[in-house]
Design a binder for these strands. Structure first.
Lengths: 138, 138
DNA sequence: TTAAATTGTTTGATACTCAAAATATAATTA
DNA sequence: TAATTATATTTTGAGTATCAAACAATTTAA
């Protein structure tokens, strides 16, 4: 079906443009893409253990340990003991980490505002509905 | 505005899920994410020179040279002389590269079909309209 | 209590990336 | 035309990210 092909192209195009936007935004900062992504997830989802964070980021815990070391050294996150499970480490943003996150999140909001500049409120509601349905199907 | 924040969350969630889907799909193959992405771009946009391909992929030409070397060795792409500009190299998929691309593209189509399972044709048209508008604003 | 499973870290190897230097060719200028 | 400047690609050297496997500490299950 041609409609499906068309939608596929548009989604891929959107993904690619989002990807290069993020890359160019991150390049302006002192941190790497992997580091900013880690901050983003912690900022949006809140503190969590290494295992869970690694899964959300799509890397192994070994990889994450290295990244967390760097972010701790940079003063953006902290390691804390898990209150119940003594094997586990809970990773949490520091105040400075929160600042970085809020700043980055604001750029995302500004982008989305620009992207939807010519979309009516009714269309925007439809779009939100579609995204909710699609995200549920993954 | 709360609506903007909501849309931002949904778009980010979609991006992240798309990203991990692609990663898990690529893991099943013999090729890396960077390699599959190169094949995807060549398959969708057709043959092009190194400079242009590097820009579309968001890497330097130096980085691309290395990747192209590997893909040539793997038999998926070929280097050809540019008919007018003797400085330039045109990169093109081989028959095997085309097969890989078609196979990968089919997986994308299947994914999009699943994602839109509960979206009506009317909503889908709206969605397509929104994506076109958004992609234009980047 | 013992055995098995889970959580996180360390280590060694590999892949990806960039910036800068080098090479070849094209385009422009004097 | 000859010299200069710009462009396209490759090569090289260094840094970063990543994984798998081995390890240590702790929890869970038998």
């Amino acid at each position: 079906m041609a409609e499906l092909e068309r939608l596929n192209r548009l989604l891929t195009e959107f993904y690619d443009k989002m990807s290069s936007w993020e890359q160019s935004v991150v390049k302006e900062t002192d941190y790497s893409l992997a580091q900013v992504h880690t901050i983003e997830v912690l900022g949006c989802c809140g503190a969590m253990r290494m295992k869970e964070l690694a899964e959300k980021l799509g890397v192994t815990t070994g990889t994450l340990t290295v990244q967390v070391d760097k972010l701790v050294r940079a003063g953006l996150i902290e390691r804390r003991a898990h209150p119940q499970d003594r094997r586990a480490i809970v990773v949490v943003l520091t105040e400075e980490g929160e600042v970085i996150h809020r700043r980055h999140n604001q750029m995302h909001l500004t982008l989305v505002e620009e992207l939807t500049r010519h979309i009516s409120p009714e269309q925007e509601s439809e779009l939100i509905g579609c995204l909710e349905k699609m995200n549920r199907e993954f």
